[in-house]
Structure formats: structure tokens, C-alpha cells
């Protein structure tokens, strides 16, 4: 098992690998003016490190993101779809994440290996 983290201000993206599976967890808030400038190259390296894995991208601990975060997020999903065996995208079944889950489900229909799951908030 090996871990790596990407840190951008109050956003932490942690990766836990245990072949053949890897979990990419987004945590905190992402409100930088140009998050892609940092995230895109870092996520490119991350995608290379998890090539051919079964991936879970977990957004359930992401408290807030601005719309500028969406572009690097979608680029990550697109690259994982190309480079990995399967990609499960997990959202919280509550609040603002419900909308993004629905939109991601619509986009996933155009991708080969991406599926979307909603998880209930803990304690519910």
C-alpha cells in the first residue's frame, strides 16, 4: 500500500493505492482562483501512477468547491477513464453534491469506464 497527497490551500487530494485498487479522496474546500494551474500537472502524475487500476474517486468529504475547480476535476475523470480499468465516482447523497452527482451521471454515459454512486451522510 502506498499513499500520496496533493495539497492546494485548503484542498487535500489523497491517494491510497492497494493494487489493483486505488482511492482518490478529495477533502476540504477548493476555492482557488486558478486551481487547474496546480491540479492539472499534479493530477497528470497521479493518473500515471494509478494506470490500469480500479479507481474510486471520493468527493464525500469535499465541503465546497468553486466552479473553477470543475474543469480540472473533469479532466481528472476523463484521464482516469482513458487510463484505468474502472472509475467509480462517489458523491454525498445530500446538499450541493446531489446536483453534481446527477450531472456526472449524465456525463458518465459518454465515457467507457465511469460509474457514479451516491452515499448517505454518516449517521443517516
Amino acid at each position: 500500500m502506498s499513499n500520496r497527497n496533493i495539497q492546494l490551500d485548503t484542498l487535500t487530494i489523497s491517494v491510497v493505492r492497494s493494487a489493483p485498487h486505488a482511492t482518490i479522496m478529495w477533502k476540504g474546500t477548493s476555492d482557488s482562483r486558478n486551481p487547474g494551474a496546480v491540479l492539472n500537472p499534479a493530477l497528470e502524475q497521479l493518473v500515471q501512477a494509478v494506470a490500469n487500476y480500479d479507481i474510486t474517486v471520493d468527493f464525500t468529504e469535499l465541503e465546497y468547491m468553486n466552479s473553477a475547480t470543475v474543469a480540472p476535476l473533469m479532466e481528472l475523470i476523463r484521464k482516469l477513464d482513458t487510463n484505468c480499468k474502472s472509475v467509480l465516482v462517489v458523491f454525498l447523497d445530500a446538499g450541493w453534491q446531489c446536483t453534481h452527482s446527477r450531472c456526472m451521471s449524465a456525463i458518465a454515459r459518454t465515457l467507457k469506464n465511469v460509474s457514479v454512486e451516491n452515499r448517505s451522510p454518516q449517521g443517516n
Partner: peptide
């Protein structure tokens, strides 16, 4: 409208913004 913009971002990785 939102999904159409997401699709544009997927097709053009160097594009950004216009989602807010």
C-alpha cells in the same frame, strides 16, 4: 446548459471557466 458546458470542457481540456 450545465451538462453541455461540462461536455465542452471534456472535449477541450485547455478550456476553463464559464460555469459559475
Amino acid at each position: 446548459l450545465y451538462i453541455e458546458r461540462l461536455e465542452q470542457l471534456m472535449a477541450n481540456p485547455t478550456d476553463s471557466g464559464k460555469l459559475g
